[in-house]
Structure formats: C-alpha cells, structure tokens
Design a protein around this nucleic acid. Structure first.
Length: 419
RNA sequence: GGAGAGGUACCCAAGCGGCCAAAGGGGGCAGACUGUAAAUCUGUUGGUUAUACCUUCGAAGGUUCGAAUCCUUCUCUCUCCA
C-alpha cells in the first residue's frame, strides 16, 4: 500500500475507496492532483468541515497536489437540504467574500503558497462558478445528463432516505453538477482523485463513472469517516452552536476549552485526526496509566496552535492553567481569556450584577444573568454573588485591579479597568 | 388542476375558547458527584425598569368580556390522485 494512503488509514480517516489498489499504484507513480469541495455558505468554517483538509495536509506533505474547490456555482442555486431552512440565495459579492475568508482558514492546514516547502505538492483553490454559470441547459443535458440513470441515482442511500421526506429537483441535480465538477477538473487540471465526507460517496462515485463514460482516464474516490463523538453529539457543535474557526465567532480561549473538554474515549481518535503529531508520539498517550488529562491538554494545545497560531495557543493554555491548575494567576496568564474593558469611572458608580454579566459572553440577556445568580453559578473572583440586586464597584477588584467573572466552574470572563 | 393533512418556543412534539409564557422529550445553562471527562441525580430554560408588565403558537383581518384554540382571506410545506 502507498505510504501516504497508509498514513490516512492508520490515522483513522478512511471510510471507503473506489479502488485501493489502483489508487495506491497511481500515488506510488506520480504526484496526484486531488480535490475536495467546500460550500461558501458562511463566513466561517467550523471544525467539522476540516476533516478532509487535515487529510489533504498529509497527502500534500507526501508530494500530492490538493485542490480546494469552493462551490461558488452550486451555492448560487442555494442548498435546499434541511426542510425548515429557507433557501440561502447568496449574492455574488457575499460568496466571493466568503471564499476569501474560507481560503485564509484553509491555509492553516493546507499550504496554498506559490512555492511550498521541498517535497510538498502545490495546492490551488478553484471556484466552480467559473464553469457552472456558463452552462447551457440543453447542451448539458445532451452531453452530461444522458449518462445518468434515474433508477440508479434513486438506489443511492442518500436519496433513499430523502424519498420518504421529499426531494426537490434542484437537490436531485447536485449529483450531476458535482460529477461535472470532477469531470472538468480532470480535463482541465488532470485531477484524478476526489475526497470527501462519507455522505459524498454517491456523488463521488458518479463523478468517477462520468469521467469514464466521457472517455477519460480511471479516476478515484476516497471518503472519510463521519466523525462522531462518544456521547453522540454532533462533532463541532457546542453550547454556542458550531465551533467556528473565526476568532470573532468563537474565541481562541473557548476553542481551546472545547478540545480540552472532549470525551475520554475520543481523545486519541482526535489526536490522530486533528493534529499533526506522529503516530508514535500519539501512542505514548494510549499507554496504560497515562493521565488522560495530559492527552487532552496536548490535543487542545496542538489544535489551537494549528488554527489560531502559537501565540493564541500559548495564551489559551496559560489562561486555562491559571484558572484550573491553581497556578499563580499573574496578569499575563489572563491574556487568552475573553475580555471586556470598562472605565474606572463607571465602576466607581457601581454596576448592577445582572447588567455586568449580560454585557459579557457569560449571559446573553438580563434574565439569563438573573437565572445564573439565582442558581448560584455567578462568581466574581472567589466571591459567589447571590443577590440579583448587588452593585459591583471597585471594592470587588482583585490584586491586579481587574474583575474575573465566572459562570459555574468553567466559563471565565475578564473585566479590564481603564483609568 | 383535484382531494386531504399540516405550519406551536433552539429542535421534536402536546394543547384545540379562560386554570397557556404554552405538557412531555431532546439540547442548553446552573447545582451535586468528579478528573475542566462520561454517566447519574436536582433545578432552570421568551423579554423587561420583575409578587407586575410586554412580545410570542405561519401572515393579515374578524367573532368574543376573553383566542395558540372559532371564522375569513393569504402564504408555505407534505401526502394521495390526474
């Protein structure tokens, strides 16, 4: 088996492949161009989107050439999946701006630079709007549509389920468009492999078949396991919704905490999938008697480092250690914490607890803050606040002239006082 | 085009004239237990200047002392038939 492919298998990425032997041979013989699709429906990706890109990272390192294909064209018609959701018809401008931010996020894992390191493959980013928007319906049906059998499409698992609940014509066409993408990428860029989540299996296979029917070379499809959590929750979802990569939407501190708090059973699995640590190194954490919390700290640190950079990772880690590890909580250690600045004049006048908490991320509204106080989960420093009418003034300041608000045991927020 | 069934809070889902800010479950938050884990148990879960008030049950009108509940129109979704 090809060593790069073997790496993906060992790390737990792979679910299925259209032809292991063929792909392995191809990868042994040449630098393979491969693609994965991503829809620019939002400003930020979340960690669930990243699995295929982590896989691409390993393949790029082995000298293969990743293509990130943003679905600018497919997004134009809106994604109809999810029955209660309104179709998102994004403007071209929105899509373009989304593409930009998505690219910068992908750059943390895949190297798109012009001159990648020695031995690494060249990565590029393309947008399927470039060819999809020009399509002529009649031509498309004549050349592409005739290769698809409705009977066969309906036999795919993805559609079977939708037959129960209803399936719009537009959604039914996704498979054709995605297959066409693969066909174009093969023709124009010599792309031989498409990778994606397991839910993409049907679409990927039909792309491979389309290329064959159109007289192209044998192409390959590779899908990755849908990542699940041991507790059955959806990967990448948290109390705040999706765990976004954008620091504006999900602070690096919270991001670190998300990984720090994964299930015991998931820890090693996630180390393999979401970090670049060698398997040997990860094996250290699997040994009997190893403190599972060390593994989780490592996971959180490595993952934060990849997405937000060393600096943010360090800050998040020191902040976390300061509050959970009983280390001296110097001001530097608080840097990674979400914070808010208020003036000393305002504080001197006294601020109601509810008001103060609702201005932080700890409570969205006054009522939520009230519940928190009444439930006994609101803290300022080491003082539990139990009176909803309490006025917070400078007497609450700690030795660093700051306020550290806390919701329960885990969520912290730092109030910085401006003179 | 015809017939029927529906649109309820973050999600699923009860309610079918006042006791409804709306049962139950999921999810979230907090408390207990812990290892910043899981499981379990308890509380809580529209908003506000808070023993009261305001806005919510697809949209707009109407009946009524009083509507998520009844009537009219509109709109969207689904199922069956053509």
């Amino acid at each position: 088996m090809n060593s790069a492919l073997q790496t993906l298998i060992d790390r737990g990425f792979i679910k299925a492949c259209t032809n292991y032997e063929g792909l392995s041979e191809l990868m042994d013989n040449e630098s393979v161009r491969m693609y994965v699709g991503v829809d620019p429906t939002g400003k930020s990706l979340h960690i669930g989107h990243m699995v295929p890109f982590f896989a691409l990272h390993h393949l790029q390192k082995a000298g293969h050439q990743p293509i990130a294909l943003v679905g600018g064209g497919t997004t134009m018609i809106g994604d109809p999946s999810g029955k209660s959701e309104m179709r998102k018809m994004l403007s071209k401008e929105e899509i373009l701006s989304n593409c930009d931010s998505i690219k910068s996020q992908l750059q943390t894992v895949v190297d798109f630079s012009e001159n990648p390191e020695e031995g690494m493959g060249q990565a590029i980013m393309l947008n399927n709007a470039d060819w999809l928007t020009e399509l002529n319906y009649i031509d498309f049906l004549r050349e592409i549509g005739r290769h698809f059998s409705v009977n066969r499409m309906l036999s795919f698992e993805a559609y079977k389920q939708r037959m129960e609940r209803g399936l719009s014509f537009i959604e039914f066409n996704y498979q054709l468009l995605q297959s066409y993408d693969f066909y174009i990428l093969n023709k124009e860029h010599n792309c031989r492999l498409q990778v994606g989540g397991d839910d993409q299996w049907g679409n990927i296979v039909s792309g491979v078949e389309l290329i064959r029917k159109m007289g192209g070379p044998e192409c390959f499809g590779l899908t990755f396991n849908l990542i699940t959590r041991a507790d059955g929750h959806k990967m990448g979802k948290s109390e705040k919704g999706a765990v976004f990569l954008d620091p504006e939407l999900y602070s690096p501190y919270d991001f670190y905490q998300y990984w720090r708090n994964v299930n015991d059973e998931d820890t090693v699995k996630f180390l393999k999938l979401f970090t670049f640590l060698s398997l040997d190194e990860i094996a250290q954490y699997e040994k009997e008697g190893v403190n599972i919390n060390e593994a989780k700290e490592r996971l959180a640190y490595e993952q934060t480092k990849i997405i937000h950079g060393v600096e943010e990772a360090d800050k998040a880690r020191t902040a976390a250690l300061a509050f959970f590890g009983n280390k001296a909580d110097s001001v530097e250690n608080r840097e990674g914490m979400p914070s808010l600045t208020i003036t000393s004049a305002e504080l001197a006048g006294g601020i109601g607890v509810l008001d103060l908490f609702s201005r932080t991320d700890l409570a969205a509204t006054n009522s939520e803050a009230r519940r928190l106080v009444q439930g006994g989960g609101a803290w300022i420093g080491e003082t539990k606040v139990t009176d909803v009418k309490a006025l917070i003034d400078s007497s609450y300041l700690d030795e660093h002239n700051e306020l550290i608000l806390r919701s329960g045991k885990k969520r912290y927020f730092r109030i910085i006082i401006e003179k």
